[in-house]
């Protein structure tokens, strides 16, 4: 049943909307769309001289999974550079069962999406957007 997918933790992450909004003067602002389902993520970041994220904000027009993973990503992104963010993506991929190993928090929350292959791109969309912002 879909309650197995929409577990409390995922719903809570989505509702938390951690760092939702815009930055006044971002170093970079990128938008990513999923053409299949229409999910859309806009991520603003400011970076320090070493390419580390100092501030992050996001606007999501998408499903609960996309909102939850964007919120989760934003909650742990500050202080990381491109390599650090790629590291976090491995956690998400592990949670989704696409890579072996245990997913660290907060991404362990997405383990239930393992059985819903058509929804996994919803979880990964903000990672694609943030990667663009850092490249």
């Amino acid at each position: 049943m879909s309650d197995q997918l929409y577990q409390e933790r995922i719903v809570a992450l989505a509702k938390a909307k951690t760092r939702a909004g815009k930055l006044a003067s971002p170093t970079k602002s990128v938008r990513r769309d999923n053409p299949l389902c229409g999910d859309r993520v806009i991520i603003d970041v400011t970076l320090d001289g070493q390419g580390r994220i100092t501030e992050i904000a996001h606007q999501v027009r998408g499903c609960l999974l996309c909102q939850a993973s964007t919120s989760a990503l934003a909650s742990v992104a500050v202080g990381r550079d491109a390599t650090g963010i790629a590291d976090l993506r491995h956690d998400a991929e592990r949670a989704l069962g696409r890579e072996s190993g245990e997913a660290r928090e907060p991404f362990a929350a997405f383990v239930p999406v393992r059985d819903y292959k058509s929804r996994q791109e919803c979880v990964l969309l903000p990672f694609d957007a943030l990667k663009d912002a850092l490249s």
Binding site: M1, S2, D3, Q4, L5, Y6, C37, G38, D39, G62, C63, L64, L65, Q67, Y116, R119, C122
Partner: peptide
Amino acid sequence: GVHPHDVAQTLDGFGVAVRAGHHCAQ
């Protein structure tokens, strides 16, 4: 307050098949 894909996914849990999204009519 609920995205159409989340409605459709919930409905699937009730055995109900519907379509959600832009319906090729953006």
